[in-house]
Design a protein around this nucleic acid. Structure first.
Lengths: 193, 193, 193, 193
DNA sequence: AATGAATGAGTATTCATTCAT
DNA sequence: CATGAATGAATACTCATTCAT
């Protein structure tokens, strides 16, 4: 079983798209083979099983997410700018793979192998840490309160972001601007001052 | 002295639990029959198909959620108390059926029938409206800012709640208290004043 | 298990109609119960099984056929008239129960019980004998050749009749008249004299 | 060195035998797979469904019948010889597949697909035409009367043949000889001259 | 006697996986 | 390396039969 190579990447890429569109059980090995432009037998040259492809595709996706957030984190920008970038990057991500993995690792535990679930949970905590890093920058810049742990703030940001995207599902293309109320809400909360 | 329709309710109840635990495709009709304590054929006396059971179980769950939130909304309490209740009620709900439905209506579109997806989307907007009603009360009480639409605030609350539960997944039994930082975050945001 | 009674007759009658219209396997016990206007359980008060109903209905039908031919045989008529009557009676019979039984006892052996097949084969030979009796009358009248056994002539008559009905399937209502070519054929054959 | 399509032919052949022996509903896909010496899944590589196999097997059989009769028609023989050949060929056919199809296209309409029924009815009319051609030859030879349409004479011949075979069911191997009474009957009828 | 709700044995079909070429 | 024809385990659903009322 080969572990590297362009063909392997192709399979993962097209399988990922199909899993996203049709779910695990409605995606057939035939579909994947056709989409990836290889013979059905070839899938088994690169992967042990359908399960295996699914697991790898999920990990692949999470890693892509991490890279994207890493990119945001690495930007030469203020906290404010990065927060906005995070929102808008998330929009793009969501529209590519929806939230079947990140938001549902736990519901999907019966599809992913135990081992992959663990891998992904670990990777998700990386995402939290990355977002927390960005928040730490905000604290250093003096725009974020210091008395709340960054990871809890990350919770609020990621959760609000996700929910807002569902709420706004129809206007997927809309970019979030810095003066959007949802941003104001994150910064200032809803309490009357 | 069985109540008429009791058997139907039993089937829905146990099917719901199984779907939640193992997903649609990994739940077999046999499993449901055994769990509900009826013969396999009996399932088809009450439901047209497995699909039908799934759809009804989902609707049932969403309706249960609505009722629960309705109860919170109907409480003779301040906004502050209701918000806390919402958090803690959500904890209990989640631990019973996770969020496979609400958060994923759109990803599940290939499992639920088109008709049921529409029904559920309508019902979810009821949830938003109910939460918005609670927020309106907060506005009347003068504790919630009036310049942000209640539904957007609902987004922030529901999203933060969901994410916080995932973050806190290991300590499921922990009740959220009024002085929890996550509540502070919702009220005041993370901006330095 | 009751063996007599109007309700039993009703069941047989409606079951016969359904078997004829839809075949054995496509006729459900539910259908029979509804058609006969009784409860499903009641069918089992009068019959051991679906198989049993089918067998009895077949026998019933063959007996009806025999009675009909008996009636023709008993007519106060010449051979010529009886032959014509036979043709036209057959038309009516066919249109009521097609030829699923008489013509196919052997093909249906897997549906009818062995015992019923034997019963019916015996009854069919009665039909042959009845037709032979009519032919004997023709011999006595001096219109039918005496050197061919009546049962072989019966073969020719019954076979030609059946096939002609299939050939003429579209004009079911057409009565065969004494000057029809098919009758001429039976009397005189196709050889040039 | 298997011929392309050989496996498909095998399936059809063995399915045909089973359908003939046990009927449509009593022939299981498992039976066909075992009889044809292939895996159950393989059946679905070559046919869409059980229905499809049945339909094709029926058509196959009718085509075989047509070919056989065509062969008789093509013989370099007199009408008398061909008529005899027809009788004896029919014996062999019958003993291989009985008459479940030809005689019953109409009763079977709920088993065969509508499309196949139409196909077969068309093919059966070919059989009539073929037999009529043979009769035409008889007319040319001056041994068959010219005032009766050949297709009606075909009716008489085919019907008498079928019925005689049922009558003679026990002595299947007996060949019909030119001086058999049944042949005399067809040529000269039963009328006293 | 009459019923019909409950049942579970029985079957067509699907699809991940194998392996000869 | 690559393939896809062949496979059979697995499963939703049907319907004759039973039996408590």
């Amino acid at each position: 079983m080969k572990v590297k190579g362009q063909k392997r990447q192709d399979i993962l890429k097209y399988a990922g798209i199909l899993f996203k569109d049709k779910g695990f059980h409605n995606t057939k090995m035939d579909d994947i083979a056709v989409a990836a432009g290889v013979g059905k037998g070839t899938l088994y040259e690169y992967f042990k099983s359908k399960q295996d492809i699914f697991d790898e595709a999920c990990i692949e996706y999470v890693e892509l997410t991490i890279e994207t957030i890493q990119d945001v984190s690495n930007m030469e920008s203020t906290f404010d700018e990065k927060l906005l970038a995070l929102f808008n990057v998330k929009v793009k991500m969501e529209s590519e793979f929806e939230n079947i993995i990140i938001d549902n690792v736990l519901s999907w535990k019966n599809i992913m192998s135990e081992k992959t679930v663990k891998t992904i949970i670990k990777k998700i905590s990386e995402i939290y840490k990355l977002v927390a890093t960005i928040i730490d920058q905000g604290k250093e810049e003096g725009v974020v309160v210091k008395n709340i742990p960054s990871e809890i703030i990350a919770c609020s940001i990621i959760g609000t972001m996700s929910e807002y995207l569902v709420y706004n599902i129809k206007n997927k293309d809309n970019e979030i601007k810095e003066n959007d109320l949802i941003i104001d809400l994150l910064y200032n909360g809803f309490a009357v001052k």
